[in-house]
Simulated assay, not measured.
Amino acid sequence: MSSSVTSRCFMADSPSGCLRHIIMKIERNSLPFLQEICYFRVYSSNYRGVPGKLSQELDTIDARILDLIQHDASLSVAEIAERVGLSSSPCWRRIKRMEEAGFILGRVTLINNHALGLNFEVIASVKLALPSRENLEAFEALVQNWPEVVECMTVTGAVDYSMHIVTTDMHAYDNFLRDKLLGSKLVSDVQSRIVIRVAKRTTALPLGLVRQTTKSSD
């Protein structure tokens, strides 16, 4: 598949995404099963900056700040500043600069899907009948309106997309498969793998692999 269509779709980033609607509803109602864990989604494959600018714009202090807030975004600026050895004002300026530069994409609250009854997870490999640019764009537009899809990626190999789907049970997934995926008339084949147990799930990126500059931005 052409690299020009390789992208990632994050439903939580969409203002109309189901996850954001659930978050807003739960926060208003203060339900007890809400996990009080926040995180910043930082530099990822949908970053729109210039390639290579990550290592040019961030120093080691920036990387430490990002690592702190991607694990716990509830930390105050004062707490972050103390941990990285800065005063509050320059620490706040660094965070603001990284937000404006696109290294920090947003802040959300993580929700316990099992407490909500969203216990059925599927990794689906999807092949389009005709993977033309027009059909790829049409399919990706449909995906944006399917709240069951929490992640969708174009991939190399024999299929066109890998999708992470979350729903309540097998019956609900069967309805999604028939009504939406196959009902789109764009899909020729779906291989479904049911998730039995999640061995690891994290939103934290491996910032230790990123080369930072030694210059201070303050």
Rank of each mutant, 00 (worst) to 15 (best):
S4M: 03
S4T: 14
T6N: 05
R8P: 00
R8E: 07
C9H: 14
S14A: 05
S16K: 07
C18T: 06
H21P: 02
H21E: 03
I22S: 11
E27V: 05
E27L: 14
N29M: 13
S30W: 09
L31T: 13
P32R: 11
E36L: 15
F40Q: 07
N46P: 05
N46S: 15
G49R: 03
G49D: 06
P51S: 12
P51D: 10
P51T: 15
L54A: 15
S55N: 03
S55T: 15
E57Q: 05
L58P: 04
L58S: 11
D59E: 07
D59Q: 09
D59N: 15
T60I: 05
T60V: 12
I61E: 01
I61T: 15
I61N: 01
R64D: 10
R64Y: 04
L66W: 10
Q70E: 07
D72A: 07
S74A: 11
V77Q: 09
V77C: 11
A81I: 07
S87Q: 09
S88K: 03
P90Q: 09
P90G: 12
C91P: 04
R93C: 02
R94Y: 00
R94W: 07
K96D: 04
E99C: 11
E99P: 05
G102I: 03
F103T: 14
L105N: 10
G106C: 03
R107A: 03
T109G: 08
N112R: 15
A115M: 06
G117L: 01
G117I: 08
N119S: 14
V122G: 04
I123P: 00
S125E: 01
N135E: 07
N135C: 00
N135Y: 08
L136K: 05
F139E: 06
F139M: 01
L142W: 06
V143F: 10
Q144T: 13
N145F: 06
N145H: 10
N145T: 12
N145D: 02
P147K: 09
E148I: 02
V150P: 06
E151W: 02
C152F: 04
C152S: 13
M153K: 15
T154C: 02
T154H: 05
T156G: 14
A158V: 07
V159Q: 02
Y161I: 06
M163P: 02
H164D: 09
H164R: 13
T167A: 02
T168Y: 13
D169Q: 09
D169L: 05
M170S: 13
H171V: 15
L177S: 13
R178H: 12
K180G: 12
L181Y: 09
L181M: 12
L182E: 03
G183K: 10
S184Q: 01
K185N: 08
L186F: 04
S188P: 02
D189G: 07
V195D: 00
V195A: 03
I196F: 14
I196H: 14
R197N: 14
A199G: 05
K200N: 13
T202M: 00
L207S: 01
L207V: 07
G208H: 03
V210M: 10
R211Y: 12
Q212P: 01
T213Q: 04
T213C: 03
K215N: 08
S217A: 13
S217L: 08
